[in-house]
Nucleic acid binder design. Structure first.
Lengths: 217, 217
DNA sequence: TAAGTTCCCGAACATTAGTGCTGACAAGCG
DNA sequence: CGCTTGTCAGCACTAATGTTCGGGAACTTA
């Protein structure tokens, strides 16, 4: 697997292989490589292909034409490694904020999206972003302009910050969630504001905060 | 170019083509398509390939084996849409932290990396991440465990948070930067700590904070 | 009905392209 | 010097693979 072990000819073959693949969209034949690398015999190419295969640098399907492949090359249609998360709106202190409906987002025009690495958004399903307005969440170390990334869920643990819908008046808000017996305490992220206590059946958990993203600090 | 014009067989061929390409890394032969799509003759495949070629959906190099290609498929070697940023270490209050050397990172084993969407890291060059330990940056709304994303630079504006090297003792630290004439004031992000004033020529700006990333809030 | 079009089938044909064999040359080694 | 190993050349063989051709079924149109 050490590149230094390769002969000049083998390096040339690897280079040519990559270029050929980019240019044509399919792998070269033994004879393509032969002419591309100024080799006088197909057997020489065959010999060096075998060596590269042993090094683990080339994959080969015996017997089928152009059955070669570079092992380090990415799959053409690999999964995107970033997820476009809809930026559904902004949230200010206590104010209700728009919620995504149940339709798939599918890049609908008119909706901003935020690219997030897939590694932090396991499924990508039910994830959306909100932009924070003002100092309403200052106690959670969330500043004006930050993006909070929300994951839809039915339940959260005590102390987690969640978007909840308060049923009587259908208000939606972002608060710290504490279950206290049959009651629920909703703690604002700003000490200037008082907590709210409600019967548990009047509070519906919609989503929880999974990440905060701040740019241009 | 209208997909609705395609026969069921032609759609099947396109689907199979894409799957085959993903699986093998090279295009299918006429006979691969024949068996993959339950077609009884190679000539039928040839016929439909010709039709798809006229529709502009398939590219074909006559006479060479597996000389087919999907025209809408991205180039195999496209740019990744996420950037792997090295996580070079952690930063605590006032303590020096390790700095990346000048070598390219190139996925060296033993160094953690963080995937960031390329849209927020324009170049990807000179970007690295630090993990915050403790409450040392609490006043900047940066909590324990947060990742701060740094961009290497020579100069910053007043008020920006920057990594600076203090020359006399080669200490490296993260502070808010204020130029005040020939002097520089370095303001800790924790009000428990006092600002430092130094001659400008003793302070070397290394990088500035461009983003903060908090997970599992 | 007859002609034209589209699509399909089976088979034969021709080229492309992988593989194996023999031999050659140079370098290292006991 | 003889032996082995690694690398290269030339050539032939054969499997893999693209192409073509005659024909037929279903459908449309004059």
């Amino acid at each position: 697997m050490n590149v230094r072990n390769l002969s000049e000819r083998q390096k040339a073959i690897l280079d040519f292989f990559g270029d050929f693949l980019d240019e044509h969209g399919y792998p070269p034949t033994v004879r393509d490589i032969q002419h591309g690398c100024d080799i006088s015999s197909t057997s020489v190419v065959s010999y060096n292909i075998e060596a590269l295969k042993k090094e683990g640098l080339i994959r080969k399907d015996d017997g089928i034409s152009r059955g070669l492949g570079l092992v380090n090359r990415r799959t053409p249609r690999r999964e995107p490694d970033t997820v476009a998360v809809p930026l559904v709106g902004s949230i200010a202190a206590g104010e209700p904020f728009p919620l995504p409906n149940d339709e798939p987002w599918s890049g609908v025009a008119g909706i901003d999206t935020v690219d997030l690495p897939q590694s932090v958004i396991p499924s990508g399903e039910g994830v959306y972003a909100l932009k924070v307005k003002g100092e309403s969440m200052i106690d959670a170390l969330i500043a004006d302009g930050d993006l909070v990334i929300m994951q839809q869920t039915d339940s959260v643990h005590n102390g987690q910050t969640a978007a909840v819908r308060i049923l009587p008046d259908e208000e939606t808000t972002l608060k710290k969630f504490y279950a206290e017996g049959a009651m629920v305490r909703l703690q604002p992220e700003n000490s200037q504001m008082d907590p709210i206590r409600l019967p548990a059946h009047n509070v519906k958990v919609l989503s929880r905060v999974v990440a905060v993203w701040r740019l241009r600090v």
